[in-house]
């Protein structure tokens, strides 16, 4: 048979794996594996090769209409260019922060921006209360408002060391270094096995073509 090699058509915002590997903790083959995952996610609802918020939520919850405060914020942080969609470069750079080998400073900064809901440059007490309440609302944990206030107060007095009613980056860094478990969600062990989960079919098919 005759195999006609077509030039691979990439999604909008595609960047060379070598470039992305140089800027992130991923290897070139891991970036290629992430591209397989990216293509799947970005074509799950609309086939435009970009990840929309609904597609992100569908991937996280298997439900495109489920709203979640943190899924919204994480999507916004992935959307580095702030144009309402996540392209391949943004996807890889953002996931890079969650790699087990990413610098802890990057994880601390990402978490700070995540919790700084209103993007004022500080985590405010109101924001902390809002996050805890939103989470309790969606979970099966039933805690009274008094108990929530007590928990928030205790955390706040521990974190707001300057006592000015807001947590700045410096206080946040001190706080998470004191309680490193707070960063556990900032590391995704899956990212170390990404080439096993998403082998690059493109590369293997090219090898076969050469052999033929």
């Amino acid at each position: 048979g005759c195999f006609c090699l077509k030039k691979t058509k990439h999604t909008p915002g595609y960047e060379e794996p070598t470039v992305l590997a140089a800027e992130t903790p991923f290897t070139v083959s891991e970036v290629e594996a992430l591209y397989e995952l990216y293509k799947k996610l970005s074509n799950s609802i609309t086939s435009d090769g970009l990840i929309h918020k609904e597609e992100f939520q569908l991937a996280l919850f298997r439900n495109r209409n489920r709203r979640n405060l943190f899924a919204d914020r994480i999507f916004d942080l992935f959307d580095i260019k702030r144009n309402g969609v996540v392209d391949f470069g943004e996807f890889v750079r953002s996931l890079g922060v969650f790699h087990p080998n990413a610098p802890i400073e990057d994880k601390i900064e990402f978490a700070f921006r995540l919790y700084d809901l209103r993007q004022t440059g500080f985590i405010e007490r109101e924001e902390l209360k809002e996050m805890v309440s939103a989470l309790l609302h969606e979970s099966e944990l039933q805690l009274s408002d008094d108990v929530v206030e007590m928990i928030v107060d205790k955390t706040w007095s521990d974190a707001d060391t300057k006592g000015d009613g807001k947590i700045d980056r410096e206080e946040w860094k001190e706080f998470v270094l004191k309680y490193p478990s707070l960063l556990k969600n900032m590391t995704l062990p899956y990212l170390k096995d990404i080439t096993m989960a998403f082998p690059s079919f493109v590369l293997s098919s090219e090898v076969e073509d050469t052999e033929i």
């Binding site: 799950s44 919204d72 989470l135 944990l141 707070l182 556990k184 899956y190």
Partner: peptide, 24 residues
């Protein structure tokens, strides 16, 4: 009460990105 408010937040499913890697 030794619960840390940020620890409670980490229970949120929205903060768990592992869903991105699950087979759909």
């Amino acid at each position: 009460c030794n619960l840390n408010a940020f620890d409670i937040i980490s229970y949120s499913s929205g903060f768990d990105l592992s869903g991105l890697f699950e087979e759909k």
